[in-house]
Design a binder for these strands. Sequence first.
DNA 1: GCTAGTCATGGAAGACACCA
DNA 2: TGGTGTCTTCCATGACTAGC
Length: 348
Amino acid sequence: MEFQVGRTGAITPVAILEPVFVGGVTVSRASLHNKDEIERLGLKIGDIVVIRRAADVIPQITRRLAKKNQKLIQIVFPARCPVCKSELEQIEDEATIRCSAGLFCAAQRKQAIQYFSSRKAMNIDGLGEKIVDLLVAEGLINTAVDLYTLKTEQLVDLERMGVKKAENLINALSKSKQTTFAKFLLALGIREVGEATAKSLTEHFLTLDQLKQADLESLQKVNDVGEVVAKHIHTFFRQAHNLDVINALLEVGIQWPAIESKQHTLPLATKTYVLTGSLVQMKRNEAKAALQSLGAKVSGSVSAKTDCVVAGESAGSKLSKAEKLGIPVINEDELLDLLEDEGLKTKD
DNA sequence: GCTAGTCATGGAAGACACCA
DNA sequence: TGGTGTCTTCCATGACTAGC
């Protein structure tokens, strides 16, 4: 049994399994999500469990098998953060238990830097979990801002880091300085502000200064932003250390083009698309960006309000749900035709 | 109650560093 | 130079939370 600390401080219990062959792969770990899930399954350390791979991908414990004469140990949820030993807190009616230390917790700090550098945020190629761990452990970085002060000479001395890899990372960091307002906002890691919300906020406020100055009332006028999310955003921009980080990031040269409010004039404005399965001729992110540039909203889940599902190879439950709801489904070729018609892509 | 977004997850594939 | 090991990226899902 292992307890992991996520970016937002969420403590996630992970079951360590005796390696077992399921659906063509060997599974040795499975998330248990939270304390309630452990109780629902009635799990104890030493249990024999049934494993499945949800959608042939995610290992999941479906139930325990009751056996006589098993030596079982009760699972005890930690009283303190397993990394920084700070107190844990649980908001009433929330299943998630969180570490209260915020960025003072090393685990949350590392996760925040990883999130900052992730593809959908600042898109820093070559900066994954291990490299971040190493940079933090060596005292080379403490916040995302420190990434931009790194030099090739500092990196080449690190374990398993050659000249090429170091140069690639420095180039990726330099390249990441040219970004978009929405990606920068996402990279800041404000609670409940993901890709879609960041995009809505930037399209509504247009500039960082206007967003920083926004009060609770005006924040709630943005699509998908209610009382709770507005409070998270408002609080974030009222904390001095967050403003210091933002200013420092701008000082190292992070910039983005001005946003023009033109969504209503685009051909797919008001349409919601969902991508599922593997695309062969283009990357998923490229397809998403292309649809968004035509004004479409690209959602992660299918509902009755979805206008169209793009199904690639090995499409899973999203395709089934779309068919059940009678939502139009197109394949990759049809998507390429659509993009070609709008002058965005030419078929090979 | 329904819808949608966020978060966290593990394995496969590919890129790259290291070493003999 | 080629084999080996490490790391990153990509993927779809379930649980949870928030908005309407």
